[in-house]
Simulated assay, not measured.
Amino acid sequence: MIYKKRKMPNELKALISLDKRLPHTHEKKHAVQKNLLIYQAGYNGELEFDNEIANFKPNYPHAIIHDLYLHHEGTYFQIDSLLITPSSITIIEVKNFKDRTLIKANPTQFIRVFRNGNRKPIPNPIIEVERKIHFLQKWLTKCGIQIPIEGIITFSDTNELAIEHQTPEMKILLNSAVPPYLNSLPETQQILDQQTIEALANTMLAHHKDYNPFPIADLYDINPSDIKPGVICPSCNQIGMRWGREKWNCPCGHTGKTEHYQTIEDWFMLVKPKMTNREFRYFTKLDNRNIARGLLAKTGLQLIGERKAAHYILMKEGKSPILVE
């Protein structure tokens, strides 16, 4: 059973918005677009894995959790996908590299081989998974659970892999091979029953906390004044919608009443964790203070303070149509 589905990572959402609002001539434009491609490729690989693991339907109780963030002794650790079964827990690290990946042993190295033949060592995902196993073991011990934990590294089926010499110590598979591999594992001693698996999965979800990189302008050392304001049209994807006759209007012909929601979300992701009426008017290019107040009141944002000190912040998840987490 899948207890948590995967959502688009916050940093990817923010990079998509930042790319739309950063001028083509900006000095950080290339770095933003480069990271955007990397995060998008990684997310696409994770979605491909999710489609494959949906075919894993064993006859014993189990729990699958995608994109889990847990905290242990001051450190957050992220797990791409987690499988809980009666006899073990499996941490699955999902990778998706465009170029050929060469895996060498003794010592284990992962090398990216570009189309022109150039090579570049990349961080060893085996070390990443071993670190996560260590922290998860510590976290489970606090919950009073002792159970074997193994790691698997998976790659998109479109990736080209080459393993030199002996196979690395950790299982490396293509996404489509994961369900058959898991189905082939023998059922050993039952450590967790169905009730315990359900309770553990729910406890993990209760302790999960989404990674928050906002505001991303700080992360990339970008001056907020360099970020282009304006309401982006969901139809033509251009900045330029204007408020008139109680709706947003785009030169392309699209109209709507809630297009400022995405603009507000962009502000919180890119610029700062609060917004004043003046800042809302600046970022939406709206002139009328009273209209701005009325639009903000319908967003579900929380108003803090009065008069010059008044500003808006995000409500807790589920209480506002604004989606930033």
Rank of each mutant, 00 (worst) to 15 (best):
A199G: 00
G230E: 04
L182G: 00
I222M: 09
Q189F: 14
K228R: 15
I103R: 01
I127W: 04
T101M: 14
I127F: 07
V113F: 03
S176Y: 02
L182W: 00
S156V: 02
C236M: 05
K228P: 05
L219C: 09
L185S: 02
C233I: 09
I127R: 07
G144I: 07
S184W: 00
Q189N: 14
E198K: 10
L219K: 13
H165W: 10
L102D: 04
G144L: 09
P107G: 07
N212A: 09
L182R: 00
I152D: 00
N212I: 13
P186I: 12
K228D: 08
K98G: 03
G144C: 09
V113K: 08
C236V: 09
E130I: 05
P224W: 01
F114V: 07
D99P: 00
N202Y: 04
I222S: 04
I122S: 03
P234G: 04
I149A: 08
A177K: 11
Q190M: 09
N118Y: 04
R131I: 03
Y181R: 02
P234F: 06
Q189I: 14
Y220A: 10
P125I: 01
A206G: 08
T158E: 07
I103A: 01
G144K: 10
E187L: 13
A217H: 10
I232D: 09
A105I: 12
I133Q: 06
C233T: 09
H165G: 03
D99K: 03
K104L: 14
I147Q: 06
Q194F: 00
I147R: 09
I191T: 12
I103K: 01
R100Q: 11
Q109E: 14
D221R: 14
G117L: 07
E169R: 12
Y181T: 02
R100G: 00
N118I: 02
H134Y: 15
I153L: 07
A177C: 04
N106R: 11
C236K: 07
Y181A: 05
A162P: 00
P168D: 11
A201V: 03
D99C: 01
T167W: 06
E164H: 12
I216N: 07
Q195F: 01
L140I: 11
I126D: 08
P179N: 01
L173C: 06
E130D: 12
I216T: 14
I145Y: 04
A177E: 11
L192N: 05
I197G: 05
I172C: 10
T196K: 14
I122A: 07
N212E: 11
K120T: 04
T108R: 02
E130H: 12
N183C: 00
D193K: 07
L140R: 05
T158V: 07
V113L: 12
H165T: 11
R119W: 00
H134D: 12
N175S: 08
I153Q: 01
M170Q: 06
N159K: 02
L185I: 05
G144S: 11
P234M: 05
H207A: 15
W139K: 13
V231A: 06
I232T: 14
T141M: 15
P121I: 05
R115Q: 14
L205S: 06
Y211H: 15
Y181S: 03
P224E: 05
P234R: 01
Q189H: 15
Q146M: 14
D193N: 15
I127A: 05
Q195P: 00
N106V: 08
A105S: 15
A162V: 09
I111N: 02
P234A: 08
F114G: 03
S235I: 02
P123I: 03
Y181W: 13
R131S: 10
D193C: 12
